[in-house]
Design a protein around this nucleic acid. Structure first.
Length: 464
DNA sequence: CAACAAAGCGCG
DNA sequence: AAAGCGCGCTTTGTTG
């Protein structure tokens, strides 16, 4: 990939950005190495415990009978043979190379205690091998110094490695706790603080496509896109709406649709989420039961080869998708066509932040790349500016990391209010003044751990 | 033995 | 017509 800043704006951003990021790398993140040792033991114990259940299982006996000395619990290929050849489950999904797909989604459909324990063990193995050991390997005098690269990605985002600081577990609370407890501030009078841009990719998308409906959604705090789509997707009223339904819709419908997914996959995922998250209406009716009462007879085949059948969830979501792109966000929809056509015509496009993308891109990449990149550039610009101000005021707080739309700091307790003022000024005011193309407000959230406590313990705090 | 591809999974 | 955007890391299994 060739780095192509096409304006002074773009060039300066990455010039200053590299300096800011390397200073951040040098600062490093303090690691509780004693905790890390305990966590590893705890994690190994958990894995051993799960392994005992696996070895005692009938399924393992069959596995062992087939593979003998070659039996390897880490081999999903072997597990696939056990499940599909010996136990006669039917394999519905294959990988691109034609082998049976054995990922988490497939395994969830196999209702066996053995498989449930297997998946659980795999998650703890990932925690141990990738994270606990990965961190331990790179720790130096009690500090971690992950790299933050600005010359890697197609989209002009950053990346991070050795270890990757941008994929530390957070979604499963148990695993998140195990890993994030290792990330601590530099002293008992200091605290880990994280500032996040809220929904910045959607906001930046609105700046590209100028869709009036989308602009209103991201500008008016009263309006709630995920809530509105939640009511439509799951056919619930305002009164029946819950936070969990909204959450399922945000991750199962809105983001996938923005990234270019289509209704067959979306419907399936939204349907799975009902049982996964045990969704029910605010008055306590299980969501599948509720949908049945609304005339939905089932999910539907969701098979690309087959026509959609009326009264299925698949059919319903197809209608929601049509409405989404052809009525609600029709300007966004038109922008995608125009943007792609301009790219096909010229062979490149330029981002609002001054970078040129001239690689081979399909339609989805072409409309997603500029948004993803520019959203990160908002973070990067802010980070540079915040770091400058911290120096200017001789403050003792540092920036220690960055995750695409958030920055993580090690803050001296008595500086917290000032740090918050600086970040708020930079991200919500200076940034939108600096780039004229930002035509929507930028919202940033602040989360802080108590003094001396780990990254895991961060909690939202109000700006006041 | 090293190098590589495929599959899977962690995050935004 | 195809059918989710971007990364990094680990393990398995193959190849030479």
């Amino acid at each position: 990939m060739i780095l192509q800043p096409v304006t002074h704006e773009g060039y300066n951003l990455f010039h200053d950005g590299m300096q800011a990021l390397s200073e951040m790398e040098a600062n490093g993140i303090r690691i509780d190495t004693e905790y890390l040792g305990r966590a590893k033991e705890e994690c190994k114990a958990k894995i051993a415990e799960l392994k005992v259940s696996l070895l005692a299982d009938d399924v393992y006996t069959k596995w062992r009978r087939r593979f003998g000395q070659d039996t390897n619990l880490g081999s999903r290929e072997q597990l696939g043979e056990v499940i599909f050849d010996i136990l006669k489950y039917s394999c519905k999904v294959h990988t691109p190379s034609g082998r049976p797909s054995m990922d988490d989604e497939v395994l969830q459909t196999i209702k066996l205690l053995f498989v449930k324990n297997y998946m659980e063990a795999e998650r703890w193995k990932k925690a141990l091998n990738t994270y606990l050991r990965g961190i331990e390997r790179e720790v130096c005098n009690g500090y971690l110094h992950p790299f933050f690269n600005l010359h890697i990605t197609m989209t002009y985002r950053s990346s991070s490695d050795s270890p990757n600081f941008q994929n530390i577990p957070i979604r499963r609370p148990e695993i998140a706790k195990l890993i994030r407890m290792a990330f601590i501030p530099r002293g008992s009078n200091r605290q880990i603080v994280e500032f996040d841009f809220k929904g910045i990719e959607v906001s930046v998308a609105a700046c590209y496509n100028h869709d009036l409906v989308l602009i209103e959604y991201v500008s008016d705090p009263i309006k709630d896109m995920h809530g509105d789509m939640g009511r439509q997707c799951y056919i619930v009223t305002r009164k029946q709406m819950t936070k969990l339904i909204r959450y399922a819709t945000k991750n199962g419908f809105v983001f996938p649709e923005f990234y270019g997914n289509w209704y067959k996959a979306v419907a399936k995922d939204l349907w799975t989420k009902i049982t996964e998250l045990k969704l029910e209406t605010a008055d306590g009716v299980p969501l599948k039961e509720h949908l049945r009462k609304q005339g939905i007879r089932g999910l539907g085949k969701c098979d690309p080869e087959e026509d959609v059948v009326p009264d299925t969830f698949e059919y319903h979501i197809k209608e929601v998708e049509d409405d989404f792109w052809h009525r609600r966000f029709k300007i966004y929809d038109q922008w995608k066509r125009d943007w792609n056509n301009a790219y096909l015509e010229k062979g490149y496009f330029d981002t609002l932040t001054g970078f040129r993308c001239s690689a081979m891109m399909d339609r989805k990449q072409c409309v997603n790349f500029p948004i993803q990149g520019s959203a990160f550039h908002c973070l990067l610009w802010s980070l540079i500016r915040v770091q400058k101000l911290l120096h200017k005021y001789n403050m003792k707080s540092f920036i220690i990391g960055q995750i695409h739309d958030s920055m993580i700091m090690d803050v001296l307790q008595r500086e917290l209010k000032d740090v918050m003022d600086i970040v708020r000024q930079v991200t919500m005011i200076d940034l939108t003044k600096h780039w004229k193309w930002i035509i929507v407000p930028m919202r940033v959230e602040c989360e802080a751990a108590p003094p001396g406590r780990s990254w895991y313990e961060k909690k939202e705090i109000e700006w006041e």
